[in-house]
Computed example of a mutant assay.
Amino acid sequence: MEIQCDQCGGKFKIADEKVPVGKTVSLSCPTCKNRLSITAPDPNAPPPEEKASAGAFGFTEMTDDSSSYDASDKPFDFIEEEGETALICETDTQIKEPIKKVLSFMEYHISDATDIRDALKKMRYHLFDIIVINETFGARNPDANNLLIYLERLKMKVRREIFVVMLSKRFKTMDHMTEFKKSVNMIVNVNDAKHFEKILNRGLSEYHQFYHIYKEMVRNISTI
């Protein structure tokens, strides 16, 4: 079944068996977390030409087979609402393992991406709280990393819900000017991976403090 979010316009598919015929289920948009109500079509209903066309509801044909539902692409279907998730885009196990250990200790539900295509598929189905990505992940030129470019171009409402950590050999840890230029929340030099817990806690603390002030300002402006 093809679904389109009426808030952000995102398109995705879910398996027909997840929505029993004649029943309505609620789910969250994987991109913006907008609540959607989905009703399975009745197979005994009149043929499409006797009903309003799908286009009237904003649905468009999805021709990319890779967008079909696959439980392995969406491993967090059934975690609790408050559960936090992390995506790791790093191929070097010596760098990745200390990071996974820290995130696991912090009770994040972790998903590994094998390449950029795999990362994008996982991101299609889930809005991760943290994404850790090596600037060379799937890219010969770290200044033209397609996954970092994708994250940079996300709608601001979606992007500010994700804490992006860029791993780098070129830049020093928590180089704020470079973080701003690269549109990431934090830079961690790969040589500092063994101190990832301390660095991440500091970065998250600054991030939450900033957005707490930001959200307060937005609320105050909206009441004027």
Rank of each mutant, 00 (worst) to 15 (best):
I99D: 01
P30R: 07
S111K: 13
S53F: 08
M217C: 08
L87Q: 01
L204P: 03
E161K: 15
P43F: 05
K194R: 14
H195W: 08
V190A: 05
I131T: 01
A15G: 08
K182H: 07
A40N: 01
E97N: 13
I133S: 02
G22V: 06
H212S: 15
T136L: 06
I130P: 01
K121M: 10
D115C: 11
E97I: 14
M1G: 03
K121C: 05
A52P: 06
R117I: 15
E82R: 12
F105V: 12
K157A: 11
S67P: 03
E49T: 11
R153W: 03
D92G: 11
T223C: 10
K155V: 07
P46W: 05
R202N: 14
F57D: 01
R202M: 11
P41N: 00
A119T: 04
S53R: 15
S68H: 14
D143F: 08
F59S: 08
M62H: 05
S111N: 09
K33H: 11
R219S: 12
G203L: 00
S183A: 13
P75C: 04
D143Q: 11
I162W: 00
F163H: 04
E152T: 12
I130A: 01
M174F: 09
R35T: 12
I116G: 00
Q209F: 12
E179N: 04
T63H: 10
D65V: 14
S68V: 15
I162P: 02
I38K: 02
T85D: 03
D118C: 01
T223L: 12
G55N: 08
D129H: 08
T91W: 07
A193S: 09
Q7Y: 13
A193V: 14
V218F: 09
R124D: 06
N34F: 11
Y69E: 05
D6A: 12
T24D: 06
R117M: 11
F12S: 03
I99P: 00
D16A: 07
P47R: 14
N134E: 05
I162H: 02
M174S: 11
K11A: 10
K11V: 13
A144S: 11
N189T: 04
K182R: 13
S26K: 11
S72P: 01
V158R: 08
E61V: 15
S28I: 09
F12L: 04
F78A: 13
S111E: 09
Y69C: 03
E61G: 08
I130L: 05
F128W: 04
S72A: 15
T91C: 09
P46F: 06
L147K: 05
I95V: 15
M217T: 10
G22Y: 04
E179F: 02
A54S: 09
E80Y: 12
F105Y: 14
K194E: 09
R219I: 07
V25S: 03
R170H: 06
